[in-house]
Nucleic acid binder design. Structure first.
Lengths: 196, 196
DNA sequence: ATCCTTCGTTCAAACGTTTGATCAGTTTTA
DNA sequence: TAAAACTGATCAAACGTTTGAACGAAGGAT
């Protein structure tokens, strides 16, 4: 076998378990069992259950970091916002656990919140704020809008749609086939809201 | 002492504890200690820890129910939406734990999710949908908008602002003094988005 | 070539602690 | 005095972590 299948298996098995039940909702025996690995391997490789949880969160949020590529692009400000929206949606689709981890940490923070989640969220919000400032200085956007409220409104429209899925699945069509429609809808509202 | 101070104290003490750490993050001893009550009182009054949790959630979501008063009012559709927004914001201010409980259940559902949280959320979404349908039939609103996406966008703008507070407190002014500005901002974006 | 040691990895077993729940008994209330 | 409210002690089960032994691979030393 390759070097440390244990480590890999543990993280892979831990992702859906931690996402569904939270740090305190899963036992080390359940984690080890799901990974097909001896339970002491958790302490051996990660120093304990919290270490495994931190490793999972680190891996999950590494995916989020690549939003910065969009910020550097030399395109229209509104197009940039649309790219953010598209990137977020496709991220949630390819990784259905990401949103769970970060809302779980927002409501029931663990030790990882200050070290991993909070900096990651602040970075995204700051990125959106800078893009909005670009649009403002380009005289494209209304200057009577509060910038933070505006970018949080955009973020809220996207994130809340996915957050609410477990409760509204019977009421709203959340299928990926409708994502394009959702993106256009959000950008429609947002554009009418911010343009001069 | 009055009849069953125990029961009252337990719920009062359990609200912030469960909200901060979730069902599995708090022990019965911690709950009883915070309430200044013998630990066996939890089983005596609520049949166990989960029973206390269910009682807390029931109490929390009873507050939510009064949104229906707004639906029955005979006022302009857009004003009705603004009242929803105002009611939600003032609810989150007077009860800072409500949002935590319901997002916690959305990400890490317990037995209460199907019985309490999901029906409550569905009821709110349905209410918003009906109001939007009123606006549609009154030819006030654009008829090319997906109704569910529209009402979820409105809900997302409000809820996400409060959900993100622990992470963005240093970046965004979340003080209650700014609530009026927030409400106007959200209604501004929403109005421009949906009006014909 | 053979032996011995060391290393990283894995294992079953046991560790001490904490968990949620229960019970017999006592106090309070009506 | 009977019912309701409450207490402290105790329970088995589950918790996360640690332990010491076992394993194959790798590297010198003889």
């Amino acid at each position: 076998m390759a070097e440390s299948d244990c480590r890999k298996n543990l993280i892979a098995a831990a992702v859906p378990l931690f996402a569904a039940k939270g740090l305190n909702g899963v036992s080390v025996r359940e984690l080890a069992g799901a990974a097909g690995v001896n339970l002491s391997m958790i302490s051996y490789y990660f120093g304990g259950k919290e270490g495994l949880y931190a490793a999972v969160l680190t891996e999950q949020f590494a995916i989020l970091g690549k939003l910065e590529e969009i910020e550097q692009m030399e395109i229209d400000t509104l197009q940039k916002f649309e790219l953010y929206v598209r990137a977020t949606v496709s991220r949630y689709r390819s990784n259905p656990y990401l949103l769970r981890f970060y809302t779980s940490e927002l409501t029931n923070p663990t030790a990882c919140f200050e070290t991993i989640i909070k900096p990651a969220i602040k970075r995204v919000v700051q990125m959106l704020l800078e893009t909005f400032a670009d649009g403002l200085s380009g005289r494209k956007f209304r200057d009577d809008l509060n910038p933070t409220d505006t970018v949080l409104a955009l973020a809220g429209m996207i994130n809340f749609y996915f957050l609410l899925e477990p409760a509204t699945a019977e009421l709203v069509d959340h299928s990926p086939e409708r994502d394009e429609q959702l993106i256009r809808h959000i950008m429609d509202i947002f554009t009418r809201g911010v343009l001069r």
